[in-house]
């Protein structure tokens, strides 16, 4: 009896702590969502009680080309992840399976793209892009986003390939499968958790990217992170409209993360073949 009481108590404390933490974590989001319904007039003199209005949504979605920037962002981020998957999976396979000179140096160089600050390379890139006419194009942004998405994908997927023993592939070959079937039927299912998780994470990083799209685009193509800045005018800041832009920008990430959170945790923490 006593132990049951104790476990009840500990459960209570656990839940209490979790509730406090979730309030702490979710409150900014809640606050942002709240602001979207406030008019500029009530922005600073009310907290929870105000006259809700949809004016901000109207202003952002109809009054500006926010929807276009949203679509631009989907094209650029989605395209970047797609290119990373198509080019990165074979690269990861090669790094996992084949032995060639300077293999580890190459792998490290790819990883190093990830930890060099973007601001470090942005000026030369800007000038190169001007010369190559890549400035302000989808291709240009998708290309430069590879710096964000590719290293992550290659390193996670490489680990998955390394966990699969070579003999499994050889056995499939002897069973009479051509190499592309070996890849589709044997390898792809085994690397799927890692591929899905790293592709999603890469998508989120690309989606959130600010520096590259600020510097390398802006007229024809604009991403939501940059577009959100437009609501800072010279005389006033439209916090309400900015909040709408940010809320809508955050939605796809939240939805995607919720959909595959199971893969996300498993995919980044476990290898492919257990036991």
């Amino acid at each position: 009896m006593f132990s049951e009481n104790q476990s009840l108590l500990s459960r209570l404390i656990q839940n209490l702590l979790l509730i406090i933490y979730s309030i702490f974590a979710l409150f900014p989001l809640f606050w942002m969502a709240l602001i979207t319904f406030k008019s500029d007039l009530q922005m600073f003199n009310t907290t929870f009680f105000f006259t809700p209005t949809l004016d901000n949504y109207k202003a952002v979605l109809i009054g500006t080309d926010y929807i276009k920037t949203f679509i631009d962002n989907v094209i650029v981020s989605g395209g970047a992840v797609l290119v990373s998957v198509i080019a990165g999976v074979p690269a990861a396979y090669a790094l996992a399976r084949f032995n060639f000179k300077y293999k580890e140096d190459l792998a490290f160089t790819i990883l190093s793209f990830k930890f060099a600050p973007e601001i470090l390379v942005i000026l030369p890139l800007f000038m190169i892009y001007q010369k190559l006419h890549l400035y302000d194009t989808y291709l240009g942004l998708i290309w430069v986003y590879q710096l964000i998405t590719m290293p992550l994908l290659i390193w996670v997927v490489r680990g998955y390939f390394e966990d699969i023993s070579v003999e499994v592939e050889q056995a499939a070959e002897l069973d009479g499968y051509p190499w592309y079937s070996v890849f589709w039927k044997i390898l792809l299912p085994l690397i799927k958790p890692g591929l899905v998780a790293s592709a999603l994470l890469a998508f989120i990083f690309a989606w959130n990217s600010f520096t590259f799209s600020l510097q390398l685009s802006g007229f024809n193509i604009q991403t939501v992170t940059v577009a959100s800045l437009r609501y800072i005018a010279s005389d006033t800041v439209h916090y309400g409209q900015m909040a709408v832009a940010a809320t809508i920008a955050a939605l796809p990430e939240v939805i995607l993360a919720l959909l595959i959170q199971k893969h996300l945790v498993r995919g980044l923490s476990f290898g492919a073949v257990k036991g």
Partner: peptide, 20 residues
């Protein structure tokens, strides 16, 4: 000749079963 075309059947020491 490719391994698949040789029509041999092999047991691997580490089993090499398809885990999925």
């Amino acid at each position: 000749v490719e391994p698949a075309q040789r029509n041999v059947s092999m047991v691997f020491e580490n089993y090499a079963l398809y885990p999925h």
